[in-house]
Structures are given as structure tokens and as C-alpha cells.
Design a protein around this nucleic acid. Structure first.
Lengths: 335, 335
DNA sequence: TTGAAAGCGCTAACAC
DNA sequence: GTGTTAGCGCTTTCAA
């Protein structure tokens, strides 16, 4: 049996207005009546119709989460962080997985005009930064990780610093001919990670060899292929810093195939710290990104915006750390 | 600028009813008028308010997808299949990740009373089958994979047959002392996989050794630990059939640590064919589950139910296949 | 503190 | 084929 607020009004003997007030927790009902009403509601298992609520109050209590590809291991923990925060605050997540298709991405932005959600959380995007800024002018928005514009609220890490530190770490492990496999260079984050690497080499007084830089696409296959290319250069690098873990795993497999011993002859450093990186052999030394926290913080910020709290635009930077594992020397620590 | 149907009515000179009809694609407008109206609507970028639509038509165009834990690799491809199908048919996914918590799971079922979605897709559950059946009497539902009741619409594989075939395959590879690590034994699917294994041994005339069966929980760690136990039995098994890939990977690591050579001295077979299984060394031989197709089919069935088409209850069984890789003899195929 | 009533934007029954 | 209008279930004024 489905009840409406009218049914409850009849059964309790109060008006619909009073029921509504009791439910919303707002002013205007005496405490005893509220208790009485809530008790009955609870017994009946009545839940207000969300569509009606939304129509009236212009709130959907939904958040659209835009994800380039749910199959990508990187996003799992982020979503978890978002989910946890959002549910606690009474919101639901509408999943906006667009399979790396800009067209589908736009489809979701179009849906927003039909008020399917109160705000958008951009976990990733295939659009031009300019387009995202445009959308953000129409709907409340928080962006995670990459895009940059002072007009946006962005939760991110310091990619430059993280890459700088990672390169320094490889140096401390004893590696001297450190190569780099970047991700898609269109992304700001790829450029920042590359820059951190370069400046670190410079500060270390290491020779900078253009041949030691390869441009990948964040996938296993590109790490595998580009590492093979790197290892055929003479002299070959004695370490590779990959811009994500998947490529690092590919690079590992390539090195193993070519007969290099890891980590003695050859060290590998990843980026992200996805679960996978500690499930392969050797376990990958990597830069930990606090993905759960990033998801959580971004959801918090978005909900703050939605509830009218003051949220200043700009970057919200979370800390990264280096997780030494088996793919680098002097760091044969499990976990 | 936000438009309402009234605005459109004024601007075109027609009544709201006509606009509504033009939009819905239903009878009652002449073709030319419909075209004219749709053109203007398109130019203005008007999208009807979903809450109003829902309130009126009792449809949310949302589907609640219940997922035990989005961080579990198994679910990614399923969700992708669901997402693709659902979006094409004009529905959105509400993500019901409940982090393996029965309490949160119930919270979502409660929300359903507030009409947040038109139907439920159960990708997994922590509840008693009986509870799921109960919920299915209240809301349209399709269940993927495990739960069993003739009252439900269930998309699944034949776990018994798949396990039977997998065991046979190990035999054909030359293994004779085949052990088994099952998943949580509360699940029907675990029991079916165990049964397939037992019957296969029986038909093969292999000796059945109770010590060769271990009860895990589908996690890496349990595969690792239980494989170690198994390998200390005298005589140790020469192969393990694990009820999922994560445990198989754990078992692999255990065998490597104990100095067994894979696949020569020791063979390992997984189940599921998650991406991970071909990214580790050695790549794991496994039973492929058509997860994308399972997601897609289940979404199709649910939408059919929602649109009033005839959907018969019972099992919809999809085929599995064995993917030979490097963790078993005579099957050193990369893929 | 409480209730009556307007109206959110839309669909569908009914009238023409 | 087209327009008028009554509500869907709720929140929120306004009046008492």
C-alpha cells in the first residue's frame, strides 16, 4: 500500500501542512505533535514522493557524477568516497559514465536542463576546459583532479611536486639514467608530471636526454610498448617513471621479457597507487593519490555549494606520498 | 534561461497540450505542427522538467542498480553493460553501492518507496534470498548472477557446468591431484561451483580428498593463505581450481613463494575472467563470464518489465568459456 | 501553532 | 486535430 501525505493527514487528524512541517524538521509544529506524527509515519513506512517534493522545492537531491569510463580502475575509490559522503547527506548519485565519448558526455549535460540533478561532479571529461567552465556557469559544479580554471572549484593533488618527489626518490634509490613515460599530453596533469620530472633532473644535475621521454596514453599496452623502445636505446635507462600504474605494469612486463632484473638493473615507479599495483609481481613502487578522500572532499564541497554555503573557487590540494614497494631498489617492503 | 511548457506554448501559439503531445511522440498532432514545434524547442534548448513529468506520469525513468561494492573489479563490466542499455532506452542509473552493508542495502529499498526509481537491478546482495523475493513483490526487479527463486527474473551462468568443465580442463592438461578453493559457501554460486568440481572428479575416477577443499571468501588474501595450506599437505595437489580470479592470483603468489614452478609443477585455474587475470604474471587460465552481456541483458529484461512487455520469470542462462593462459600446462597462449 | 489553499510543470481526460 | 482543465503529491505562503 502506498500512502500520500493526505492519507497521513487523515489518519492523524492533522492537516497536510502540519505533516509536511513535521517531516521537514522545520519550525511550526509543537514538539509533541511532531513526535506523534513521526511515530505513525514510521509505523506505516510512509516515504514522501520524491518527484512531488522535487517539483515543489526545485531540488532533486541527486548529484550527477561524470565518469569517463567506469571500467578504469582509477575511478573506483573516488566513487566510493563520493558515494559515502553523498548518501549521508541524503543525496543520490546518478551515474554519468560516458565511455570516453564526448557525445555521450554532452548528452548528460543536456539532461541537466531537465533538472535530473542539483549539481555535477566532474571526475573526468573529454571536453575542452572552456566547455566545462561554460557548463559550470549553468549548474553547480565541482571538478576533481585535472581541469584548470580559477572559475572552477577543483579538488586535486600537486602533480608537479609529486612527480618531482618521485624522481628524487628514484635518484636516492641509486638510479641515474631515469626515463619517463607520460600520459596523454593534452592533459594538464601529464604536463605537470613531466615538468616535475624535468626540474628534478635539472636540480640533480643529471643529464637530460630527450630520447628518454616517451608519450603514452595511460594504458597498459603503451607502457609495455614504450618501455621496450626505451630499453633498446644505448645506453638504456636504468629506471622509468611512468605517469600511471597501468603503464608501469606494462613497463615491468616489458623489462622482464627483455631479461632485465627488477629492481637491481632496472627500477620502475608508477603513479596513482591503484589496488592493482600491489597485486602484480613485482609490486609497484608508486605515488599514492588519496582518491577516497578526493571523492569525499569534492562531494562535500558540492553539497556545500548546493546548500548555499560559501565555497571559494580555486584549487583544493590534497597530499600525495610515495609508497616504496618491490619495483625499486632498497625498498623491498611489502605493501 | 529556463523555459517551461507554458513558455513554449506562448511562443509557438499552440496550447500546452499540443506541445506535450508533440514532445511525447503520441497521437494527436499533425505532422507539420509537430515538426514546427520540435524545431523551436530544439532552438531554445528546452528540456521538460523531469520531476513534473514523473509526478504526473508516475515514472521516474531511473533504475536503481544495487552493487555490493563498486571497488570490486567484478562489477565494472556489468555496470558498463547496464549503463549502455539503459541510456539508450532513456533511463538513468541511480547508483546503489552499499559497501557490503546490509543496513545500507535496506536503506536503498526504503528509498524506493519514495519513488526514486521505477525498478531495481540487483547485481549483488547481502540479504537473505527470501528478503529479495519480498522486495521483488513490491517493485519491478531483475537479479543478476546468484540468487535463486523461481519467482524472480534471474540472469546467470551455469555455475555447475562451468566448474565441471574447468575441472575437466585441468585434467586434460595432465593434472591429477586437483584441489579446490571455494568462495563464501553461503552463496548458491559457491555451492554450485563446488558441486561441479566434485562430480567432475567422480566422473574422472579421481580420488576425492576432503583435505583438498578449502573455504575462502573471494579475496586475494584468502587465496594466498589457503593455497599455502594446501601446498603443505602431503602429497600436495598439483593444481588448484579457485572459485574466482582474485583468489587464483593469491594462490599463484603463494605457489611462487613456496618455489613451485607454474604451470609445470603446479597449475592454477581461476573463475570470472576479470581484466586483472591477464595482467598478472603468469596470466591466469580462467572461466570467462560474459559480464557485459549479463549487464546488458538484465537491463533489457528490466526495461521490458517496466514497459509492460511479457517477461517470464526464471533463469536466463548465458554461456561461459574457458580461457587458457599461462597458469596451466599446454596452454601458453598470450591473450 | 495550526490549517486552507495556491501552485510547482507536466500529462491526460474530456470537450469541441 | 486541438484546446481547456483537473490534478499528480508536495511545500509554502497567508490567514486565523
Amino acid at each position: 500500500m502506498k500512502y500520500t501525505i493526505k492519507d497521513i493527514a487523515k489518519m492523524t487528524g492533522y492537516s497536510v501542512a502540519t505533516i509536511s512541517r513535521a517531516l521537514s524538521g522545520k519550525e511550526g509544529v509543537s514538539e509533541e505533535k511532531r513526535k506523534e506524527i513521526l511515530k505513525i509515519i514510521d509505523q506505516l513506512g510512509y516515504i514522501p514522493n520524491q518527484s512531488a517534493r522535487r517539483l515543489r522545492s526545485k531540488e532533486t537531491k541527486n548529484i550527477l557524477v561524470m565518469i569517463p569510463d567506469i571500467e578504469n580502475y582509477f575511478y573506483n575509490k573516488l566513487i566510493k568516497g563520493i558515494e559515502t559522503e553523498v548518501r549521508e547527506k541524503g543525496y543520490n548519485i546518478i551515474l554519468g559514465d560516458f565511455s570516453d565519448s564526448q557525445e555521450i558526455e554532452e548528452e548528460y549535460y543536456r539532461m541537466m536542463k531537465g533538472q535530473i540533478a542539483d549539481g555535477i561532479l566532474i571526475v573526468g571529461s573529454m571536453s575542452q576546459p572552456q566547455r566545462i567552465v561554460e557548463v559550470s556557469r549553468q549548474f553547480p559544479m565541482v571538478v576533481i583532479s585535472d581541469y584548470f580554471s580559477d572559475e572552477l572549484v577543483t579538488v586535486c593533488i600537486d602533480n608537479f611536486k609529486a612527480a618531482y618527489d618521485a624522481t628524487m626518490f628514484l635518484y636516492k634509490c641509486g638510479y641515474r639514467r631515469i626515463a619517463k613515460i607520460t600520459g596523454k599530453i593534452g592533459a594538464v596533469l601529464s604536463r605537470d608530471r613531466l615538468k616535475g620530472y624535468r626540474i628534478a633532473l635539472e636540480n640533480l644535475g643529471l643529464e637530460f636526454d630527450e630520447r628518454y621521454i616517451k608519450y603514452g596514453d595511460f594504458k597498459y599496452e603503451s607502457g609495455y610498448r614504450l618501455a621496450k623502445e626505451l630499453l633498446k636505446i644505448s645506453p638504456p635507462p636504468d629506471a622509468i617513471f611512468c605517469s600511471n600504474d597501468e603503464m608501469a605494469i606494462g613497463a615491468c612486463d616489458a623489462a622482464k621479457e627483455l631479461g632485465f632484473s627488477i629492481p637491481e638493473e632496472f627500477g620502475i615507479m608508477g603513479f596513482d597507487d591503484i589496488e592493482l599495483s600491489s597485486m602484480v609481481t613485482p609490486k609497484i613502487t608508486t605515488v599514492h593519490q588519496p582518491r577516497y578522500e578526493m571523492g569525499k572532499l569534492s562531494a562535500q564541497l558540492l553539497i556545500n555549494i548546493l546548500t548555499g554555503e560559501e565555497v571559494s573557487k580555486g584549487k583544493y590540494i590534497l597530499d600525495t606520498s610515495i609508497i616504496p614497494r618491490e619495483s625499486t631498489k632498497n625498498a623491498n617492503i611489502t605493501k
